[in-house]
């Protein structure tokens, strides 16, 4: 009797654990199944090389490049902000900050990471864009620069906390060795901690990239929603995720080509994230230091 009950409970728990695998499976299969009819209609080569994305117009073009460009530019701007700031903060908190400062600062950083993205979007549009317009005359009201900057600030806490964890994991005797040789804290940080923790820091960057690529509301609010093939952050443009939101806000009939395009966009988004994750995996493996 006891045996049977234990077995039933274990099976239920096992099924619960399997639910996460089922989720992944469901995500991949829904994206692929809904995308197949689209690729019957639009050849893959056209999808990759056409320079216009106007699936809802009469003169429909289905080229992913403009959306891809928007995603890359906003992500690029965000990383230019987040990587230097995040890494500096991580080193500072790990090696320089007094204990008290750390305890006070860390909750604030956590808070910065917990702000809903729609609030950041509002902030980018209403607060950051007017300031940037004063600095850069002629900047349009919707632009990728403000969106990217705010997105960068949003990612800083993620990069800082994951890199700091990695830096903390560096064995203390190595640091003490470095100090014993007369190195300063800065020298130790640059020459000892960063190389030793590199695989962890790389994962932090990859996490940041995934966040930036998938981030939706900031770009949908502040970067404009017009697909625009440009690498100039001063212009408005739509990203892959912003396009999905824009289409979802309208009323698209189930099964129409417009409906299929958002799944194609989602599939592209997943593939980009996947590529970066695989890259990160190999980077981390290549530079992993074992003590």
């Amino acid at each position: 009797m006891r045996r049977v009950r234990e077995f039933i409970i274990e099976s239920i728990l096992f099924l619960a654990a399997l639910s996460s695998v089922a989720t992944t499976f469901a995500i991949v299969s829904i994206l692929v199944i809904e995308s197949i009819p689209f690729f019957r209609h639009v050849p893959l080569l056209v999808f990759l090389t056409d320079i216009q994305w106007t699936p809802l117009f009469d003169d429909a073009h289905y080229g992913i490049m403009p959306l891809m460009a928007g995603t890359l530019v906003t992500t690029g701007v965000a990383l230019l902000v987040a990587i230097p700031l995040g890494t500096t903060i991580a080193i500072y908190l790990c090696e320089f900050a007094p204990h008290r400062v750390r305890e006070i600062i860390k909750p604030f950083l956590e808070l910065l990471g917990a702000v809903p993205t729609v609030v950041f979007g509002y902030f980018a549009l209403i607060f950051v864009t007017p300031i940037m317009q004063k600095l850069i005359p002629g900047l349009p009201g919707f632009n990728m620069l403000s969106a990217g900057l705010v997105m960068g600030i949003m990612i800083v806490p993620y990069i800082a906390s994951v890199s700091e964890d990695a830096m903390h994991a560096v064995p203390k005797h190595i640091l003490e060795g470095s100090y014993a040789m007369g190195a300063t804290r800065f020298q130790t940080a640059v020459r000892v901690i960063i190389p030793s923790a590199f695989s962890g820091i790389a994962s932090a960057y990859i996490l940041g990239i995934s966040r930036a690529v998938g981030e939706t509301m900031i770009v949908a609010i502040a970067a404009g929603q017009q697909p625009n093939l440009t690498l100039n952050p001063m212009e408005p443009a739509a990203t892959i995720s912003a396009y999905i939101v824009q289409v979802s806000l309208g009323d698209l009939p189930h099964g129409s080509i417009g409906y299929q395009t958002i799944f194609v966009a989602g599939l592209s988004l997943m593939l980009i994230t996947l590529i970066f994750n695989i890259l990160g995996y190999f980077l981390a493996k290549r530079f992993r230091e074992v003590y």
Binding site: I30, L207, S241, N277
Partner: peptide, 13 residues
């Protein structure tokens, strides 16, 4: 690490 909007597409389908 899956972007949140992809969960939205899963749910839609």
């Amino acid at each position: 690490g899956v972007p949140s909007i992809v969960y939205g597409l899963l749910a839609l389908g």
